[in-house]
C-alpha cells in the first residue's frame, strides 16, 4: 500500500509539474517547510463501522491533517507559484484520486483548472465523494463498489475540502491552481518547483491547518534557488 501511495504522489507531482523530458530548461526553486509552535497530536482513526476497511490496515491509521516529521518538517504542504507565471500552459493528464482502505490517496491532490480529474473507488464498500466547494459548484455523489470512475474537472482555482459522509473520518483536499508549477512536500518537508523560465515569482506554501505563507523569488536562467517556509502550528 505504501508503495502504491508513493507512486500516486509521484504521479501527481509529475502531472502537475512539467513533463520529465523538458527538465533541462529553466530554473528551479527548492526548499523545506517546517513549523514552529506545537502541532496537534496525530490521532488514531477508528474505522470500526466499516470492517472491510479495518481489514486493509495492518497498523492503526492516524489523521493526516497535520503530519509532521523529524526536524519539525511538515508533510502535505502545497507549494506553488501564485504569481509570475500567468499564461502558462494547462496540463491535460488525468489526476487520479483514489479511495482505498477508507482513505483518500493522495490526501491532497493538486490539479490545474480544467485539468481532468478521475475519482476511483478501490474499496469493497460504497463511498460518497463530497467536495465542499464554495467558488466552484459543490457536488455530492455516491460511488458504489465496482462503480466506474467519476470523471470531472474544476473551473475555478480553489482549495476544496473533500469529505465522505458515509465515512466521516475520510477527509482530503482538491487543490485547484492556475499554475502548472506546484509541488507537495514529502515526509521530510522538502519540495521542488522545476522548469521555471527566468522571471520574478511569488511562491506560496499552503497547509490545511497551518495556513499560508508567500515569498518572492527571482529566477535568472537555469539556476536553483532555495526558499524555506516556517509555518506556525497550534495544538488545537
Amino acid at each position: 500500500m505504501i508503495a502504491r501511495f508513493t507512486s500516486v504522489v509521484a504521479l501527481v507531482a509529475m502531472v502537475s509539474g512539467p513533463a520529465p523530458g523538458h527538465r533541462a530548461a529553466g530554473g528551479t526553486i527548492s526548499g523545506k517547510v517546517t513549523y514552529t509552535g506545537t502541532p496537534p497530536k496525530a490521532r488514531p482513526i477508528d474505522m470500526s463501522k466499516e470492517p472491510s476497511c479495518v481489514a486493509q490496515h495492518a497498523t492503526p491509521v492516524t489523521t493526516q491533517d497535520a503530519v509532521t516529521g523529524a526536524g519539525n518538517s511538515v508533510d502535505y504542504v502545497v507549494v506553488y507559484i501564485s504569481a509570475g507565471d500567468e499564461g502558462a500552459a494547462a496540463a491535460t493528464d488525468t489526476v487520479r484520486y483514489e479511495q482505498k482502505g477508507c482513505q483518500y490517496i493522495p490526501h491532497v491532490a493538486v490539479m490545474q483548472v480544467h485539468q481532468p480529474l478521475a475519482v476511483l473507488n478501490d474499496d469493497p464498500t460504497s463511498h460518497n465523494i463530497h467536495p465542499l466547494a464554495k467558488v466552484n459548484a459543490e457536488w455530492n455523489k455516491s460511488q458504489p463498489k465496482g462503480a466506474p470512475p467519476i470523471h470531472t474537472a474544476w473551473d475555478q482555482p480553489e482549495f476544496i475540502a473533500v469529505k465522505c459522509n458515509v465515512h466521516p473520518w475520510m477527509h482530503g483536499y482538491f487543490v485547484v491552481l492556475k499554475t502548472p508549477h506546484s509541488s507537495i512536500t514529502d515526509s521530510t518537508g522538502a519540495f521542488k518547483l522545476e522548469g521555471l523560465p527566468a522571471g520574478k515569482y511569488t511562491v506560496t506554501a499552503w497547509h490545511e491547518r497551518f495556513g499560508t505563507q508567500s515569498q518572492e523569488v527571482t529566477i535568472a536562467g537555469s539556476e536553483t534557488k532555495t526558499a524555506n517556509f516556517v509555518l506556525t502550528a497550534r495544538p488545537y
Partner: peptide
Amino acid sequence: SDADQNFFGLDPA
C-alpha cells in the same frame, strides 16, 4: 469538524 475529528465540537483551547 469531521476534518479535525472534532465530532463533538469541543473547544480544548
